[in-house]
Amino acid sequence: MSDSVEESIDLKKVYKGSRPIIATVILLGGTIGLLFAIGLSVSFGAADIDFGTVWSAVFQFNPNLTTHQIIQDIRLPRVLGAGLVGACFAVAGSIMQGMTRNPLADSGLLGLNAGAAFMLAICFAFFPGLPYMYIILFSFFGAALGAGIVYGVGSLAKGGLTPMRLVLAGAAVSALLGALSEGVAIYFRIGQDLAFWNAGGVSGTKWEHLKVMSPWIIAAIIGAIMLSKSITLLSLGDEVAIGLGQRTGRIKFFGSVVVLVLAGAAVSVVGAVGFVGLIVPHLTRFLVGSDYRWIVPCSAILGSLLVILADFAARMINPPYETPIGALIALIGVPFFLYLARKGGKEL
């Protein structure tokens, strides 16, 4: 760099970009919104409980009151579960999209969710009554299995992996794994357990689940944030990333581990809900730009918000019956997917 240029720079006038401000607003506003959504979701439900009771149930819990029990044992873990699951799917999707430069990457579309759900079926069939802390491990393995098969099938095609080809392979493999899960369920007569697990959304979430899954999820999200700068470089393309001194193989390995843990943990609670990991990262990128140091934490917040609100809607549309949360999210997700696919996968 020439000395003359160096001297002539007034650093106060040097432009630093405006994205961090928007991102900070999302993080702060999102957190407030999240607290509000949690409050809303805990306060309303099939049972009519007034707000004062809700407040005291959360902060001065009295185990002898039924209303307090509903709040503490049903609504609160359910809301927190929804939030965690949303963050998981959204962060997993953003890492996948950044690492693979594939705008259609989502744990649902690429077979991770179906793989995890399949392993849950195996778990229920062969190891009934297995504690949740082991079930979640099966779920991680299932996510890896699904991803492995999809990438394997996709790579067999001539001309290599394109975003569309991967999605097609994902759809085919998901259908296969879904059918296998059904088969296992019918043969072992666990259809009801499984249906409850998969379609029931987050309604079955217990404190016990939260205790087991939280450490995994928090560790994986911290990992994702630590990787986020490297993911940004990978999103510029492998060659550029290598040129900038990135160890691409290592980052891809750790990134994949993070994705599998997040998708596996989420599916083990909510079943194979898709599209959260597709919609949220795109929305976040639109708002905060292409820097994954902002995309990852903002996706986590917005993902939580989306699933909590979707779960709330699922309970409120037709009480006391619950609308499947997966169907509700697909209602937004499918048109969004079609929109992205039509754009020709240009956007990342």
Partner: peptide
């Protein structure tokens, strides 16, 4: 290194 077909993710500004 400047690869042959480098393509920036959409939305990225020049400064970024």
């Amino acid at each position: 290194i400047l690869p042959q077909s480098a393509e920036a993710p959409s939305g990225l500004t020049i400064f970024e």
